[in-house]
Simulated scan of single mutants.
Amino acid sequence: MTNKNEQHNTTTTSSPSISKSTTTASSIPISDCGDKSPKQTDDADPMVIPLTSRHTSTTWTHFTRKRVGKEIKVECNYCNKQLTGGPRAGTSHLTEHANKCVKRKCLNIQQTRLFGTQAKDGGSNDTLSLAPYEFRQHKGRKDLAEMVILHEYPLTIVEHYGFRKYSNTLQPSFKVLLRNTTNKDIMQRYETEKEGISALLIKTNSMIALTTDMWTSSNQRKRYMAVTAHFIDNGWKLQSRTLRFLYVPTPHMVEVLTEHLKECIHSWNIDIRLSSITVDNCTTNDAMIDTLRQEFPYGSLMLHGYGLSAVIKNGLDRIRDIVAFWTASDKRNQKFEQVAKQVVPECTKKLQLDYKTRWNSTYDMLMVALNYKEVFVILSGRESLFKNLPLNED
């Protein structure tokens, strides 16, 4: 950005827009932009009325006071249009005319742009409105970095000929930087977002639950660890924030995964506020959690760090067995549905067996099975092979 005094010959352009100055009467930079009036006051003209000490506004540089008949008019020095110029007329209308006079060669660098709003129904009720516009190089750099992040563009896009030509057409004043500078802007955006999340976590009074999973990129076949924090903010709204997304080199041994997750927890200072860590059901994660359980305060973890499965495992296994039993064949399933229609006719959902590694499927299985609690009791007396009936506490 250059100083306004250095921008007197610069005109701001943008895609289809109409630019007009928006400065007030007391701030029109007449001398700054080198705007010379094409018509000088002619003392020999009997119609010209000289300015007095009351006419202090710089707006008067654009106009000449004249007497037309019995009225006092103000004539534009550029287009010769005459406007009201009596003692009580003020200068607001003069400033407005000076800012949009089509014959004035130089306008202020701070512009307004004509925005169009199209009717949602596709009709003809389009509206146009003027809004302030001022070019900012740093804002363009920020938006460019965000574009690369959102759409996963390669950093080299900023050096492509087509992209630079397109950017110059939209805004010639915008300087497209090199990829190294764009990379720095992206990292700066990351640090800004990280500071915001850190401040939110510090301000929040609730405990923090973590979920983590391994993710494999489709093109490079590299594996990454994603760590997400879940918590209730002080306004009682559920919040989720990604704390870490990092590349984990092979081999993906328990020690390596444990060290990365532990470093993430300590770097965000949430170890004493940690309530739970949810992972997929695999032997590597089981071993990782067993190791981490020794690293964090015993009292902060829910269920003393042993997880939900340790508390409901026996009951969950029994419910899973009866669902598997009654969905094992079409004959059993038909028999179950016949009894269900008589006992709970309002429920039409089918029994579904869960996937042990997906808690959402386990939740769905439990919610459906709960509706058929009485059906299971009745069938236990009619089917000799059905013996593993869930307990009331299950």
Rank of each mutant, 00 (worst) to 15 (best):
I322R: 00
I270S: 05
L274I: 02
P297Y: 02
F163L: 05
M253F: 00
N108C: 03
H304A: 10
G123P: 10
E191I: 09
P172G: 02
G34E: 06
D185E: 13
L308F: 09
L128Y: 09
L243F: 05
I157Y: 03
S361P: 12
H93F: 02
S276F: 01
P46E: 11
C33M: 14
K73S: 10
Y161E: 13
L150T: 13
Q40C: 04
S276I: 02
N205V: 00
C33S: 08
I378G: 00
V102L: 13
T64G: 02
Q111E: 04
L155Y: 11
Q294C: 06
D271N: 12
M207H: 14
D143R: 11
T192L: 08
T10D: 08
K222N: 10
G315E: 03
D280Q: 11
R382E: 15
T258H: 04
E263R: 12
F325V: 01
F386Y: 14
K175E: 10
M207R: 15
I72T: 15
I289Q: 01
F135R: 02
N205D: 10
K66H: 13
C282S: 13
L274W: 03
E255C: 02
Y78S: 01
N360W: 06
K387M: 12
K313N: 12
Q294F: 05
E263F: 02
R241I: 06
G116I: 14
N168K: 15
T2F: 01
Q239F: 00
S53Q: 14
F245I: 06
L201S: 06
T283I: 11
V227Y: 12
M253A: 10
R179K: 15
T84A: 13
F376L: 14
F174N: 06
N168D: 11
E346R: 10
V343A: 07
Y161P: 00
C33H: 10
I28K: 08
D43K: 11
